[in-house]
Design a protein around this nucleic acid. Sequence first.
DNA 1: ATGGCTTGAGTGTCAAGA
Length: 259
Amino acid sequence: MKIATWNVNSLKVRLPHVLDWLAAVQPDALCLQETKTEDGGFPFAALEAAGYRALHNGQKTYNGVAILARDGPADVVRDLPGFADTQKRIIAATLGGVRLVCAYMPNGQAVGSDKYEYKLRWLAALADWLKAELQRHPHVALLGDFNIAPEDRDVHDPVAWQGQILCSEPERAAFRRLTDLGFVDAFRQFEQPEKSFSWWDYRMMAFRRNQGLRIDHILLSSALAGRCSACTIDKTPRKLERPSDHAPVVADLADPDPA
DNA sequence: ATGGCTTGAGTGTCAAGA
């Protein structure tokens, strides 16, 4: 089973890239963030024609998350249970025995801002919910744009970014709270190239200079982590005309051992 | 240099991203 996550920064603009990427990579499930549309503008038919059913939690202009899957997903949840939020950042579904949680975590804008406080509250609510979710489903995969670079090696210039948004200690502590629940950063289970990033600013030719951050992640519950045979960042679509500023992250999961 | 691009909204120019 191949699962993936990609912040597309507007699905209307990026649909051709998404369709090409689905055809080339053939994932069983793709989690999308920043679709930036309500259902009315969502390309259900084009994705269906490509062999993917879509679950969408949409919003006009901002946010919006979706799960594209070959098989029909079950037990769909939209939004963080028990957390009052007008922003559409969560969609979850069960597929092939795996509980997929697609998340677009808040950006936070600046350390100390109202949006930063919201980010930390949102992350705390996510951890509380996932703790309960792990009791119900041992095989949980949390995929998405975390807007957190968990360690200095995930940052092109750790000195410049020290303490800044996406890298601050409270954000990194929120990430560690997830790994303390038993989640494993799939990417770090394997040897990776140095300076591996998943996001590059549109400005300053940041991609060409590889001035990026690794903020898009696939976290696997311990029961799932043992089935993961590979995890990679696919920089190919970042090189296209009018790219998303994020690259997809892909994980391969072996079939479960027969009981 | 609190900039630089890109998107959506809406038709002038701003909010937001990260």
